[in-house]
């Protein structure tokens, strides 16, 4: 009698794989539209053609352009005009500190943002000047000279004070680029920063109330409270996160989240930080996984040899 086992195995494996393919890769390809990554090229934004002069840029940022009316620049000792909660009360969201903007964001994006914030942020649909809805950041209309040169100077200044790309940690990237709108509870991150440890519950609750006040203003501004991102690395896949950060509208048409304009490298770091929060043990999983696989293969080989020995007498 011939051995039918190989044939049976082929049939079982084939039906299993077919079912798997149908309910996983195929079904998901039908459920979610595929968004191609543009590699953070921001092709719709005009490139900077002028060579910027950082010194002049500094004069503009801290002078004529009036950036520091709203933004702090901790690196250069420029303090914030008001605390985060008050700022959110008046602008909807706390304007970011500009120290590392030059490292976090794409230069083209920064240039466009200075000239036309709602356009760069891809939220033009939310602001209608005719109805008096203005983006809280006032567009820079020029300081009297060549506006393109002035913008290039300001970008050059921001780049000159920012941390070097290799000093920008994933945690910094996330906190500075996303952390004014999103919490990350599992990393103790609130929109006001890392929640300190308080000895007394009263102090801790007082801090929570400040966060709630900030969130209230933010909710009013955004239409809904941006979600906590602790587990987003596991609830969304990496490709989704990356294309969403690049252009939120491509994945969720009409979403209130602006295009943040980060460079490809910053986005990569942001996602790495999300992985550190939502899939903390991924490195351990891989190394333990390898060892378990090696062990299990040895286990199977010994089982096979034992079976061979026992069955020798049976034929």
């Amino acid at each position: 009698m011939k051995n039918k086992e190989p044939l049976i195995l082929v049939v079982v494996v084939a039906f299993t794989l077919l079912t798997y393919w149908l309910v996983e890769p195929f079904a998901h390809s039908q459920m979610h539209k595929h968004v191609e990554s543009q590699n953070f090229a921001y092709a719709d934004l005009a490139p900077i053609i002028k060579t910027g002069d950082a010194a002049n840029g500094k004069a503009l940022v801290t002078g004529a352009a009036a950036c520091i009316g709203c933004h702090s620049i901790a690196k250069d000792g420029v303090p914030a005009g008001m605390d985060a909660v008050t700022a959110a009360g008046s602008y909807g969201v706390n304007p970011p500190d500009l120290s590392n903007a030059g490292a976090l964001y794409d230069p083209k994006f920064l240039a466009d943002l200075i000239k036309n914030p709602a356009h760069a942020l891809n939220v033009a649909h939310k602001f209608d000047a005719a109805k008096g809805q203005m983006h809280p950041m006032i567009a820079f209309a020029g300081a009297g000279g060549d506006i393109d040169q002035e913008v290039a100077d300001m970008v050059a200044y921001l780049q000159s004070i920012a941390v070097k790309a290799d000093e920008l940690t994933p945690k910094m990237a996330f906190e500075e680029a996303c952390g004014r709108c999103h919490t990350m509870k599992y990393e103790n991150w609130t929109q006001l920063g890392t929640k300190p440890e308080f000895k007394f519950e009263k102090e801790s609750l007082a801090y929570d109330i400040k966060v709630l006040e900030y969130q209230e203003a933010l909710t009013k501004y955004m239409g809904k409270l941006p979600p906590d991102l602790s587990m987003y690395f596991r609830s969304r896949n990496e490709h989704f996160l990356s294309t969403f950060i690049e252009n939120p509208q491509s994945q969720l048409a009409g979403t209130a989240m602006p295009r943040v304009g980060v460079t490809a490298e910053t986005a990569h770091k942001v996602i790495e930080h999300m992985a550190d929060a939502g899939d903390t043990k991924r490195h351990e999983r891989e190394s333990v996984g390898k060892n378990v696989m090696i062990f299990i293969i040895i286990f199977a080989i010994f089982a096979l040899l034992w079976k061979k020995q026992v069955w020798r007498d049976l034929h």
Partner: peptide
């Protein structure tokens, strides 16, 4: 009953399984 006693391979297999149990 001969085959109900473990032969050499049976013992070796048991030892490997034991390593797995200790690991877990």
């Amino acid at each position: 009953h001969n085959s109900s006693r473990r032969g050499f391979m049976g013992k070796a297999f048991g030892a490997v399984a034991g390593v797995g149990v200790v690991g877990s």
